[in-house]
Design a protein around this nucleic acid. Structure first.
Lengths: 106, 106
DNA sequence: ATCGAAGTTTGATGGCCACCGTACTACGAA
DNA sequence: TTCGTAGTACGGTGGCCATCAAACTTCGAT
């Protein structure tokens, strides 16, 4: 009670993030939509709070791809997993990339 | 003799360039290397001037993918095809994206 | 006209991966 | 402890695509 739960699910350190993995992660329409929703929210979203037209298991797969690429961070909160964008890390490694992607009309 | 040959090979208009196609095009290691070499050169390069570890036919395939995504422009010069980056179009549509990708250490 | 150089096209192959349903795990509430 | 909720893990399937070799095309030079 009352303590900040920082129960992070494993992902790459900032220096381990590879541009190819990030681009591959962003190149899928479902994952791109997830990133857009995370960017719009500018905070954490649970899996169930994401509005994408795929099954639960497929969404799990996409979220793992994003996390392992270093695009998102995942924090466990009880039985819920909260997703957030790793804006700082991405902006430092690839300045402008994320903003450029989000600037695209869709 | 002496006139500028502007024999462009077909590609999408600027407004037809889709972010998903661009990301997919950039997500392949061979194509990303092509983009890096084009960016370093800051001009036109013939297919044969590109240093990538794939066969001729595979390179043709990659260059078509890049062109049809709107990442590169292709100009025919006799029997040679000159490739160039569509920097202006990409920067206008997705400001920062290309620079961010090129800023990645590799 | 012939030949070589530069690329494309075609057809085939193998691997990756997006997708699903089902079964499973873990946590919280009643 | 039982039940519901949230999400993961596991097989399995189909489709896309990176790859190549071989045959073809097109242009320029000889």
């Amino acid at each position: 009670m009352g303590f900040m739960s920082t129960d992070l699910v494993a992902g790459p350190e900032r220096d381990e993030i590879r541009i190819e993995a990030v681009l591959h992660a962003l190149a899928d329409p479902v994952r791109l939509e997830v990133v857009r929703q995370l960017a719009r929210q500018d905070g954490e979203i649970a899996c169930g709070g994401l509005d994408v037209p795929v099954s639960k298991s497929t969404l799990t797969h996409h979220l793992r791809t994003l996390r392992e690429a270093g695009v998102t961070a995942t924090r466990q909160q009880g039985t819920i997993r909260l997703q957030s964008l790793r804006r700082n890390d991405l902006d430092e490694l690839f300045p402008g990339l994320l903003d450029g992607v989000l600037a695209a009309r869709h």
